[in-house]
Write a protein that binds this DNA or RNA. Structure first.
Lengths: 129, 129
DNA sequence: GCATCATATGAACACCTGTTCATGTGAGCC
DNA sequence: GGCTCACATGAACAGGTGTTCATATGATGC
């Protein structure tokens, strides 16, 4: 899950590809305002990581309460191994951070943005349920 | 079999999976506060849908400007077919909505939450670049 | 009617993902 | 030391995913 792997590496900024364009002015303006690729790729990976129900439950639980690994497993109903694998992915994207206390490791959200992201997201989906 | 099989009742609502729990009080509280499954699943699918770089670029472009399909393709550098497939996924999750004008179909974000979600997300990732 | 344009969709393929199982690691305690 | 606990990690498999190619749809204009 290396985010620094520029896999589809092409996309020349001035090559509009061979598609017929309806409003070239709009297209040019949008292309000028788009965030740079690294930000887009990192955000996509962040969303994709939150896009797994198990990892989302973990993040959601940690938004409510700092927890150790085995308590996360109990709270969301997963095996310890699966939780640990998920936590690594979340850590690598700086969505959660860990703190050691003796033998046990406690996890919590990395910063306040994550909580807001979750809140916005739930607000959105709860309108269509 | 008559009556008294002295077995503790299995499937206590607080006993999910056989993991050893460190702080049962915390676990119980978190489980009580977790959003219901349908909301979690729908939000996960929403995040997953935004978690593809191509779809994220499309949503990002539409956050800047209403666009028709071919202009989206030109703006983000994808084929018309790929854009159309992506738009269907985005439509089904109510992330974008369409409007017809003659032969062309214009797309824009479905509501303001999506824009906020994007803004929060970019704010988060731009701190670690 | 027919041709064309803008978009949508189906099938198929290579690629990626999350879980389980087994095992490794490293701290605390006797 | 040796043991256990809490967690991390590697391998491997089933299932899912996004793209391309070819084709379909539906609206416009002749």
């Amino acid at each position: 899950m290396a985010l620094s792997a520029p896999r589809p590496a092409r996309r020349d900024p001035d090559d509009l590809c061979e598609v017929k364009v309806t409003d070239l002015g709009r297209v040019r303006r949008v292309r000028r305002l788009l965030k740079p690729e690294p930000a887009v790729l990192l955000l996509a990976e962040t969303f994709r990581t939150l896009g797994d129900p198990s990892r989302l439950r973990i993040v959601h639980a940690l938004a409510l309460q700092e927890l150790c690994v085995c308590d996360i497993a109990a709270a969301v109903g997963m095996s310890q191994s699966a939780v640990s694998h998920s936590l690594r992915a979340l850590r690598q994207l700086r969505l959660v951070r860990s703190r050691r206390d003796g033998k046990t490791t406690y996890y919590r959200l990395d910063d306040a943005h994550i909580g807001r992201l979750l809140a916005d997201g739930f607000e959105h989906v709860e309108e269509q349920l």
